[in-house]
Computed example of a mutant assay.
Amino acid sequence: MKQRILTAVIAAAIFIPFVIYGKIPFILVTYLMATIALYELLKMGKQSIFSIQGVLSVLLLWVVLWPDKYIHAIERFGFEKLEYIFVITLLYLSYSVLTKNAFTFEKIGFHVISSLYVGMGFHYFIEVRSIGLTYVFYALLIIWATDSGAYFVGRALGKNKLWPEISPNKTVEGALGGIICALIVAILFSVFSNMDLSTIKLLVMAVLLSIFGQIGDLAESAYKRHFGVKDSGNILPGHGGILDRFDSLLFVLPLLYFFNQL
């Protein structure tokens, strides 16, 4: 527990100043975290990032991550973002031919989905930060409240398993407790924050973000169980890897961004 708390304090002390400052330093840190997360995911699937297919996955990740604000920088060569993604996909297929199908179609799918999953989640971390710092803290606090509520309510009242095939310790009561705690956070934000959103919209967002945050957590639990690993990595002692810490946010941040556009 002490190690877990110490790691959390040190990580927050390093990470939060970048979030607050934003701009290019925050984007670079996001690129770094996303690349580490991709490394962790590929490693779970027994794929090396230090290979031709791994390099292609990193390139795909970096293209997907590219901020909308600077989209003109990569489109100046006459290609749109989606066209770069298509070209990289063709390179995967070409490499499959060159390896005489040693790099199989299934492995191509794993690499592409891994890069898109990690890339899109962290891309919207950048985009949500561009909307405003308050939105980032709203997402973070919704996730933390959901996790804490699910843990404590689940331990105190949990009887009915939520999804035992994937995560045997999670309960329906815990999941509902997490949603209730997220609603409390939304109410506090409606009173004390400068978010230009109605209380009703904040409450609806809180419910959706809490639900999808828990789905994101279950999704990572599912592929960790599939690959037979306990944690995605060990870069954060007591917490696992980057992917372990951002699994919920990778689902929540795109949803928050889309919901804010309505």
Score class of each variant (00 low, 15 high):
R245S: 07
L61R: 05
I113T: 14
N101Y: 15
P254G: 06
V112Y: 14
I16N: 02
M195S: 08
E40Y: 07
W66P: 06
V185C: 10
A175T: 09
K161Q: 13
I166Y: 09
N101M: 13
Q261A: 12
W66L: 10
H111G: 00
M33S: 08
T89R: 00
I74M: 13
L157F: 15
P254T: 01
A219M: 10
G158Y: 06
K230G: 07
G174S: 11
K2F: 11
S96I: 12
V87K: 01
Y21S: 11
T30R: 01
V64Y: 04
I143F: 04
T199Y: 01
T199W: 05
F77C: 07
G174N: 11
K23P: 01
E173Q: 13
Y135E: 12
I10Y: 02
L65R: 04
I27R: 08
V191A: 10
I36N: 06
R76N: 08
D247C: 05
A186C: 03
V112Q: 04
L202W: 01
H72L: 09
Y92T: 08
Q214V: 01
K201D: 13
I184T: 06
I85H: 04
S193K: 08
V191N: 12
A145R: 03
G240R: 06
L183F: 01
I179S: 08
V128C: 08
I74C: 03
P168Y: 03
M33E: 00
A13G: 12
L188E: 02
S193R: 07
T89Q: 04
F192T: 13
F86L: 15
I36L: 14
L218Q: 08
G119Y: 07
L256F: 04
K2V: 14
E40D: 12
L208Q: 05
L255Y: 03
F137G: 11
I184H: 03
S232K: 00
V29R: 00
L162C: 04
N101Q: 14
F246M: 13
I16M: 06
L197Y: 08
L61F: 10
V9S: 02
I108P: 04
S198N: 12
F212G: 09
T30L: 09
K230S: 08
L93N: 06
I187S: 06
N169C: 01
Q3F: 07
I71N: 12
I10A: 12
L157K: 04
V87C: 10
Y151R: 09
V229W: 07
A34F: 02
L157V: 10
K23I: 00
K69E: 15
L203V: 10
I27C: 03
Q261C: 00
V191L: 15
F26T: 05
A182I: 03
K2N: 14
Y257C: 03
A186S: 15
